[in-house]
Design a protein around this nucleic acid. Structure first.
Lengths: 207, 207
DNA sequence: TATATTACCATACAAATGTATGGTATTTAG
DNA sequence: CTAAATACCATACATTTGTATGGTAATATA
């Protein structure tokens, strides 16, 4: 028995990884069948048996959604990077994903969060550097002093957030960059979300 | 309807968090009943209805294991930090966890990896700082130039790895710290694992 | 005292779910 | 050519699973 997967099996495994890592819960046979337009579950059933025999998954018999990924540490989840975000001057934010980063299992995303790649060095005193991936949660209310991602006039920035009486200040850690003061005249200003973490992969520097 | 949970409801919610975050997959009603020695599922069923009505979970009707945590970003998973690791001079590594870090959902770990908190600044030119959490995978073979965690004489370091003919060099990025050369005389030398990533939570700096 | 809330149990049922078995058609390897 | 592997379909069946309904007891509330 070869350990390589066929195209169909690979597609199913990809779906499994996507569901387990992305949605957080393994699919049922019916879910998989529906995704691939199979008319019944037994087709999925047989594919899973082969994938298990080849060592890529483990199944708990009789248990609903009892599919586990065996080679967990080898799986990297491709996550879309929604744009580049300036730590220095504002940069354009793109409507579609500009790139994907291979995040290891460590970087499991909450469903409602997304990634932005930082360009520029205005946050280097907060230890965020060009190339780092910041994890942004749009559903958390920023408090003063926290780092936020914000959009103003179709460009995006990552800066520290300070709310005052009639205005909002976005401050760089790096004193080379002056604070941005938001008042009524910024009609298009919007806080995108709170930066809840920074992730940096170590892969690139191998040699 | 109050939004506070009773003791029983809190216990059940704790179990849900534990299972969903720890095991990765939500339990069935039967699982919960078994854990709490309930004779049937309808007891669980009614508790879940109340917990949902109070806003702590969301249930997908008719869907097995269809329990979601509503306040996901508020739940933190305590992960053991196995020790402190010197980026500068070697530090003692402890047999037990010295601390736990509250990692948000983003930081779901692969099963075989563990965390070390970095002390010292010998890696600051690799943008790893005191207080950062490095993610170490003990099952990956380090290549030259990659950053590894290593133990020598009961102390641990995080440095760049270079394998030569008869020796191994561990090099700090920061030139203030001289390279450590490993040859036969280090009987207790051991590569603990490959540093696959750096994670830094942004929580602390709020104010 | 009357009423709601909490915390359980029992039973019943439809739908979801995993599995077993048998079948067809196509492609690949010996 | 023959056998094996692959990729599907159909049907049948036992559990599992979620849910609906009704009941009991203890406690708190008004």
């Amino acid at each position: 028995m070869k350990t390589e997967l066929t195209e169909t099996q690979k597609n199913i495994l990809d779906f499994l990884i996507d569901q387990i890592k992305g949605k957080g819960i393994p699919p049922t046979l019916a879910d998989i069948a529906k995704c691939f337009r199979y008319k019944n579950r037994s087709t999925v059933q047989q594919h899973l048996q082969v994938i298990e025999k080849k060592g890529y998954i483990r199944k708990s018999p009789k248990l609903s959604r009892g599919i586990e990924l065996t080679l967990e540490e080898k799986f990297f989840v491709p996550r879309p990077v929604l744009g580049e975000v300036a730590a220095g001057n504002p940069l354009t934010i793109y409507p579609d994903a500009i790139d994907t980063v291979e995040l290891p299992t460590i970087a499991r995303m909450p469903k409602d969060s997304f990634l932005l790649r930082v360009k520029g060095d205005s946050l280097k005193d907060a230890y965020i550097f060009s190339g780092d991936i910041v994890i942004v949660n749009p559903n958390l209310e920023p408090k003063n002093g926290q780092i936020v991602a914000a959009v103003l006039d179709d460009a995006a920035v990552v800066k520290r957030f300070y709310k005052k009486k009639n205005e909002i200040e976005l401050i760089s850690e790096n004193p080379e960059y002056p604070p941005i003061v938001i008042d009524k005249k910024y009609a298009s200003f919007k806080i995108v979300g709170l930066v809840i973490g920074v992730y940096r992969s170590m892969d690139k520097k191998a040699g």
